[in-house]
Design a protein around this nucleic acid. Structure first.
Lengths: 178, 178
DNA sequence: GTCGACATGTAAATTGTTACATGATTTA
DNA sequence: TAAATCATGTAACAATTTACATGTCGAC
């Protein structure tokens, strides 16, 4: 009854080594120095994650002939797992709690999914965003008198933020459809 | 060498019981049913959190005379801790990774901080948001040719999302200044 | 009288954080 | 040759998730 499901960090690493073979240290540097800085770069998270990925045979460690250094590369298994993850149906709870994960999925779709699947992902994202935004607006109206000002403003922030995501998503859809 | 620092969930609960005395179950319901649904409502997180807060004497358990049921209320200590937390200087890393926490801090400021401190919080937030947005834009430009399309679009999402937060914050500042 | 909601917990497993530890290689 | 960076790991601790466990109370 073991879970064996890769964590979000596992997928982040998997997506990175898919694009380019990397050593553990190089992966840490990516998380430290690039816009992916929201993921942990501590050795105590990266190296255990790489072990997990190896145990699941999603990545393998190979010697780079040029640099004589060991690097990780994605396996067939790993590619399939990455694709499965990207094609997972979006749920309302993802939009409520795991927007980061959806964005990470999108960020790695390059060259893995075809245009049709990317569009389907964005369309599904739009539907769930709209639904969640509406829920928040209704909640705001229904609790107008009970909720203190700052609480209402915080919810308003949530709505605005989701609207920004929605308009981004529509924009990207437009852009992809050329 | 123990840390004894309340977690984000601890502060979320502390903020709730500050507004109103609540039982553990009632707290769970808030996280299940309201816009605070991004915080965990599982008994395995709520009850241990309440124990931590009690051990730190930030909340105390009392019998509600009317309902004959036990509820938690915030202590003097708890009020001070909540205030300290809200007055913590904002850092760039908060804007990069912990925007949720900043929003939670704002959401509970009602009746705890005076107008001046709220404004200072928002002004500091603005400064850090602007700085982070600029960093992301520079990163986008510097890596334009190396980063694949989806990666650039994901960063663009980050920028748009932060801009939404910034415009919200400016709006709130305006609103508070009347 | 039974079903659903109220109500409070614990245990195991998982994950991640912080700090520690070690050594090689490069560069000033 | 000393300092910085490269490079990989472990250990202790903290927090959360999931599942289990138990019992009360009100409504139908």
């Amino acid at each position: 009854m073991k879970s064996n499901n890769p964590t979000l960090l596992d997928f982040a690493i998997l997506g990175l080594v898919k694009k380019e073979n990397l050593s553990g240290y190089q992966i840490r540097k990516v998380f430290e120095e690039t816009a992916m800085g929201n993921y942990s770069s501590s050795p105590g998270s990266i190296y255990p994650s790489l072990k997990r990925l190896q145990k699941l045979s999603l990545v393998e460690q190979k010697l780079n002939e040029d640099t004589r250094k060991s690097q990780f590369s994605i396996t067939e298994n790993g590619l399939a797992a990455l694709k499965d993850w990207m094609l997972r149906p979006i749920e309302l709870s993802d939009v409520q709690k795991n927007l980061d994960e959806l964005l990470l999925r999108f960020a790695f779709m390059d060259g893995l999914l075809d245009e049709k699947d990317v569009m389907h992902f964005l369309e599904s994202l739009n539907i769930h965003l709209i639904s969640h935004i509406q829920n928040l607006q209704e909640f705001l109206q229904q609790t107008e008198d009970q909720t203190p000002l700052h609480g209402r403003l915080a919810i308003d922030h949530g709505i605005r933020s989701l609207n920004a995501t929605l308009s981004w998503s529509k924009n990207v859809l437009h852009l992809i459809q050329k």
